[in-house]
């Protein structure tokens, strides 16, 4: 059975766990370094505050070991703050966290909470799904090898780079399991 690790230092990780469990995966949480002693087949980086998660990743000594796993091909699904953690560049922030995906993201790209919104839209490989944006980022520029999966207006909101899927929105907050299914069925097999 597929074992999925969900980063659980802060944010909406339980929502991902429920969805993955519902799809038949075995799920466990990463909160500290010793949690990495277990084997796992895939990693989920949830929504939350990227500054908080980034800081905790560093100080709990999780950043480097997880970066190594991502670099060596561990499938990753990242939503919202997770996208910021994966990005090589953040246009309005000096920090870089994993920096494993050649994209430039803009944090809080839609402004404050009044700018949060929902649309329904086609995501490549997945189909039409509801997209929920909560104080969301978007991708301003994508480097070579990055496949664009969805755009809202002119802005990239979903992308795939090798083993990494990054989304500016929150499939874990919806009833639709299609994105998680795609992640489990296709990415983890590649």
């Amino acid at each position: 059975m597929m074992r999925v690790a969900v980063l659980a230092v802060q944010g909406a990780f339980i929502e991902h766990e429920r969805m993955l469990t519902g799809l038949g995966a075995t799920v466990f949480e990463i909160r500290k370094k010793t949690d990495l002693e277990q084997d796992f087949d895939a990693l989920v980086l949830p929504g939350g505050e990227s500054t908080v998660m980034g800081k905790l990743l560093r100080e709990l000594d999780l950043l480097e070991p997880l970066r190594k796993k991502i670099k060596s091909g561990m499938p990753v699904l990242a939503t919202c703050a997770g996208l910021i953690l994966l990005a090589e560049h953040i246009s309005n922030d000096e920090n870089v966290y994993f920096g494993t995906m050649p994209v430039t993201v803009k944090r809080n790209a839609y402004g404050r909470q009044l700018g949060s919104f929902e649309v329904e839209m086609e995501v490549k490989h997945v189909g039409k799904v509801p997209l929920r944006f909560i104080r969301a980022p978007f991708i301003e520029a994508a480097g070579e090898g990055v496949e664009i999966l969805a755009k809202v207006d002119e802005n990239i909101v979903a992308a795939q780079f090798r083993n990494q899927i990054a989304l500016a929105f929150h499939p874990e907050l919806t009833q639709s399991t299609d994105i998680h299914k795609y992640f489990l069925e296709h990415l983890t097999r590649a």
């Binding site: 802060q10 929502e15 939350g48 505050e49 703050a81 949060s116 909560i134």
Partner: peptide, 29 residues
């Protein structure tokens, strides 16, 4: 859903921009 994103986090009272910075750097969500 914004509240869901704050879960597992700490919200801190601040009275000045300097304190806000300290809070953010300390990991306030």
């Amino acid at each position: 859903e914004l509240a869901q994103m704050l879960k597992g986090g700490v919200i801190m009272d601040v009275t000045t921009p300097e304190q806000a910075k300290i809070a953010e750097e300390s990991g306030a969500c």
